[in-house]
């Protein structure tokens, strides 16, 4: 008898408290707000964060085998502070040989890029119209000054690469420029992300320039063709 009564009583309570158990929208709002404020308060926008994530993967994959898809990089609150949390799902650590091989491959790749850049510069100076199979080179030869800068900034994401290129044969005026660029990179490495951002933006601008010059070139070609037709 007592049990029946208790059951009945519980049902009534359940009925009346039902409204309270629906989705707590305030918690949703609070959590969303906390997240968005964290993003607002840092200067790192999602684009830069994604880039940072990519660079982290490149760096870490030299030493460990991991699930790249599941690698997480985000800001989380830690007491009163903001923490940059990197969660790396490690499948296994690489052994020494593998790491050595990866590092060697990386060095070789840098060397190759440096050489490519040099060749491109030489091409520029000779004003040669040589067309190569390599896509990067192709763009570089097409668009004089700006492009060689792009290849510079690309390779200078690493110090060793520029050092290497300095060791090998480089035309003197270009060498100056490289040194200057390298300095700039070192600065940005030490200071805040704003400068880094600037550098990135600078690079973007250069890339945009390339696109623009390409466009104008094609437009010029079209124009000359039209003129010919009229004649």
């Amino acid at each position: 008898m007592k049990e029946i009564f208790a059951d009945f009583y519980n049902r009534i309570v359940e009925f009346f408290s039902k409204t309270e158990e629906k989705d707590k929208t305030k918690d949703v709002a609070r959590n969303r707000l906390k997240l968005v404020l964290m993003q607002d308060r840092t200067n790192l926008n999602p684009r830069l964060l994604e880039r940072l994530r990519g660079e982290m993967i490149d760096l870490l994959s030299k030493y460990v085998v991991m699930d790249k898809e599941l690698l997480e990089l985000n800001f989380t609150p830690e007491d009163d502070q903001l923490a940059l949390m990197l969660s790396i799902p490690v499948i296994r650590a690489k052994d020494e040989e593998e790491i050595e091989a990866a590092l060697k491959a990386e060095d070789e790749e840098k060397e190759r890029l440096a050489k490519l850049a040099e060749e491109a510069e030489e091409d520029d100076e000779e004003d040669d119209d040589d067309e190569s199979d390599d896509l990067e080179e192709d763009i570089e030869t097409d668009n004089e000054e700006d492009t060689s800068e792009v290849s510079d900034s690309e390779e200078e994401t690493d110090e060793t690469s520029s050092e290497m290129s300095e060791n090998s044969e480089i035309p003197p005026p270009k060498k100056k420029k490289k040194k200057h660029k390298k300095k700039k990179y070192q600065q940005s490495e030490n200071t805040d992300n704003e400068e880094k951002k600037e550098n990135l933006e600078e690079k973007d601008n250069i890339e945009n320039k390339i696109e623009n010059t390409e466009q104008t070139e094609t437009a010029d070609k079209q124009l000359t063709e039209e003129i010919k037709q009229e004649e």
Binding site: T19, E20, K24, T25, K26, D27, A29, R30, D80
Partner: peptide, 18 residues
């Protein structure tokens, strides 16, 4: 609305904005 958890409470906002 705060009672039914449909609005952020005063404490929530104060905590978020510190």
């Amino acid at each position: 609305l705060i009672k039914t958890n449909d609005m952020m409470s005063v404490e929530d906002v104060v905590e978020i904005l510190s």
